[in-house]
């Protein structure tokens, strides 16, 4: 069953069509890639799926439920977690605190219990902290737990951001350019980690990334966007040999990608 799907999603900003009739299906436990030249509408598509934009027409479904009009936080509660193109973290918190806040919806105690420091609230906060530490440990970031964000490199921040989104306990993880700031070796490592995360956490993953070889290697299925329209879709092998895609990326006359 499709965990996440977009049906005929279109959005225009003051007459300018950013997305036109985009149809995307993401099945459980798949890693789905979204590629396309700059300005093709990839991030706009993410924003439509996660509720930051409301599509002008078309619908968005999470686990079969129509969510087109829901707010971002309501979609998060329904199991969609995302990262941002430029790091989406709370800059005045430490790494561990970021992952703690991201678990917002996992906390059971109410406002008054929190304010009055009821024992169960304190206990739950302890569990929250331990869980946050585990997530960091799982991603190999435990040594950064008490660091402030100001001291971290861009690549590190992108990784911490993934940890924070894992804190929301998503079914679908949507990553916007997770390789930004990473070297080739770290990128390979991240690819491995993505596959491992999918298996360990039974995650479904949607990735935006410019690094085509990486995408061809990691993804099960790839959608190609160009000028807000779906240019092609298919298994990595098919995309590799698609002439249109190669042209969109490399210009006229290019034979194939990679």
């Amino acid at each position: 069953m499709a965990v996440l799907s977009a049906r005929d999603v279109s959005i225009s900003f003051g007459g300018l069509k950013a997305l036109t009739d985009v149809d995307v299906e993401v099945n459980e436990n798949e890693i789905v890639g979204l590629i396309g030249p700059n300005g093709a509408g990839k991030t706009t598509f993410f924003n439509c799926m996660t509720g930051f934009y409301t599509p002008t027409s078309g619908d968005v479904f999470i686990n079969g439920e129509r969510v087109s009009e829901l707010r971002p936080d309501q979609r998060t509660v329904r199991g969609v977690g995302r990262t941002f193109q430029h790091v989406g973290l709370v800059r005045s918190f430490t790494v561990l605190e970021n992952v703690m806040v991201a678990q917002h919806r996992k906390v059971g105690y109410g406002l008054l219990s929190g304010l009055t420091g009821m024992p169960w609230a304190l206990e739950e906060d302890k569990v929250l902290r331990a869980r946050a530490y585990e997530v960091l440990d799982y991603l190999g970031l435990a040594h950064l737990a008490d660091e402030r964000l100001g001291g971290l490199s861009y690549g590190m921040l992108k990784q911490v951001e993934v940890a924070a989104v894992l804190g929301t306990d998503p079914d679908v993880l949507m990553l916007d350019e997770p390789l930004a700031g990473l070297g080739p070796e770290e990128s390979d490592e991240f690819g491995e980690r993505l596959l491992r995360m999918r298996r360990d956490l039974s995650l479904t993953i949607v990735v935006i990334e410019h690094h085509v070889p990486f995408m061809l290697r990691v993804c099960d299925y790839i959608y190609v966007l160009n000028f807000g329209r779906l240019l092609a879709e298919g298994k990595p092998e098919a995309i590799r040999q698609n002439r249109d895609v190669a042209e969109a990326y490399l210009g006229e006359g290019a034979a194939t990608l990679a």
Binding site: F13, F84, H86, V90, G150
Partner: peptide, 21 residues
């Protein structure tokens, strides 16, 4: 660039506003 608030292109933002007054 330090953990900044996520920034979409500002033009897009205002266009989004216009699209959804």
């Amino acid at each position: 660039m330090v953990a900044q608030e996520t920034k979409e292109p500002t033009q897009e933002e205002s266009e989004a506003e216009r699209a959804h007054p």
